[in-house]
Design a protein around this nucleic acid. Sequence first.
RNA 1: CGCGGAGUAGAGCAAUCCGGUAGCUCGUCGGGCUCAUAACCCGGAGGUUGUAGGUUCAAAUCCUAUCUCCGCAACCA
Length: 647
Amino acid sequence: MSKGKFYITTAIAYTSRKPHIGNSYEIVLTDAIARYKRLQGYDVFFLTGTDEHGQKIDEYAKAAGVSPKAYVDKVAGEIRAICDRLNTTYDKFIRTTDDYHEKAVQKIFQKLYDKGDIYKSEYEGMYCTPCESFWTPSQLKDGKCPDCGGEVHPAKEEAYFLRLSKYQKQLEDYIEQNENFIYPESRKKEMLNNFIKPGLQDLCVSRTSFKWGIPVPFDGDHVIYVWIDALSNYITALGYDPDGSGELYKKYWPADVHIIGKDIVRFHTIYWPIILMALGEPLPKQVYGHPWLLFGEDKMSKSKGNVIYADDLCDLLGVDAVRYYLLSEMPHANDGSITYSTIIERFNSDLANTLGNLVNRTIAMTQKYFGGVLPVNDQCDDAFDPALKDAAMAAVQKADDCMTTYHIADAVEAVMNFAKACNKYIDQTMPWSLAKCEAQKGRLSTVLYNLTESIRFLAVLLTPFMPETAKKIAEQINCDILSYDSLACFGAYPLNHPVGTPTPLFARIDAEKMMAEIEAKQKKAAAKEKTFAEIEGIAQIGIDDFAKVDLRVAEIKDCVPVKRAKKLLQLTLDDGTQKPRTVASGIAKWYKPDDLIGKKVIVVSNLKPAVLCGVESCGMILAADCSEDDVKVVFVDSSMPNGAKVR
RNA sequence: CGCGGAGUAGAGCAAUCCGGUAGCUCGUCGGGCUCAUAACCCGGAGGUUGUAGGUUCAAAUCCUAUCUCCGCAACCA
């Protein structure tokens, strides 16, 4: 029985590097919602994928010494593998380098251009010829180029713009008329007050500074702005085509909800709706900006070897435990945190003790007292029974309320609270005591039946969150009545029906032992990282490339903090020339001026000057990244003369 | 004074909009039970709600100041 269609998407993941566990939250969250909707009978289409264009990827690929395409193929593969490992049921995995997507995006761009909503204009500014850079009047320093201090002249560069201004009123009306469009509420105010009401400026939607993108169809010098490219995936994946869309598109668009991180709400609630309005297509019904998963103790960093990846965690604890943790630990509005000790704690207390033990003890008792088959009886009810049944029905209702507002953690909690109610029911009814008296057999049978039926409720309710566990529970109670509709009333579990064998669902974890293992693993990873990993994959250069870098010994004569900058120190160096050299360095966190004055360092003397927080920096001093959060300047012997060339 | 978020029991969070006995989970301590995975059930201890003022009969909640932490931006040449 279908309740209608439900189209749900994640943001597509940027293929800059392998995602850690925090990045994996979104796909699990979306999967839980998708599974829940399917369970309820919706015709669900669940889309995820990867965003593979842009300057950053171009740069990463260069650093790795491979082509952008080879780079994104590798990372997209890793991302997809993690989605699969997390047992997510996406219906389609789109890549923005897919041929059909690129073609459709070009058509979209063309259509908007033909319609006049994208227009060619000029990016105006002050141009510095030697630096090949544009500057706005406010960036200029005394009317000169802030980079080199040279003359600038007014110049124009052509670019394509999207007419956001035209749709401002229409967007504002849509947001105000559709209360739930931007969710949660707080983000809606943020968008309206900060961006829309002050007035939208037309958006520059093409780039000429790099090539790794989809070319503008009628102007090969430009590539399409990555956000136009990326956002379009929600419709190109369904076969949207300005000249006539496919069946999937007709069936599923508009999206019922876009699940995205809170940092990209702006793109999804301003640019995206306007693109759709310009195309004449309906707008998504809702955009949910979820919070981020942060890291409790230390910051994760490769060099410490403590980056938590979803697949490693799955190896350690099992997929469902990871899903359970992500879904139950993340608050609805605030950022959540993750540590190994909280994962283990939750695993033991919720999964092993509350849930696993409940299933185990119930089935064990059924086997022990009735050989696994509960005889039909006349349902000897007791005072505790209505409370249990009410709790079951309440859990279904509460979970549903929470799921529809995307309070996933609360929905999970509602289900686990019911498991606790079952444990309490066992203590109240004391089956072991009933078993001692033959006259109580009927009552005992009723109690165990109620428990088995309750466990069936749990199996169904847990399906969206822990699909494998739900399946295992169903097997142990030997029951395939698992539809959502079967929760309409208490008592669908068949009478006189054999249960399976009790097998622990989750083995308790010895926290100390596991922490020791993890630490050992991290040490190993950190050691490996320091010696090899950073060096592997770096593109090789020739001696002539190196010769371009001019390194000199210099003495730090003076050092002051830079105003308005947290990380910068301004150094004055004696590099052997007559002229003192000023260099800005981002080491304020680790060094005080007094630590540096009088010391000798190595300076890259022929680096193009740059202005940082108002300070003109001519060159840079060498320093080592000792770990993610520790930097040490390379000091050299004081006997080296200032200005000596280092090679 | 760049923008924003957050400071509540040992830990993680709720209550804050719209003032009215500060709740929940984990841990801890005590008790109970013995079907079960040292599990389960009950109870206790633990908080002058970051700090200082103010408004009020009454402040975690409203106002002012201040400190700290975290994102973003800027910036790590």
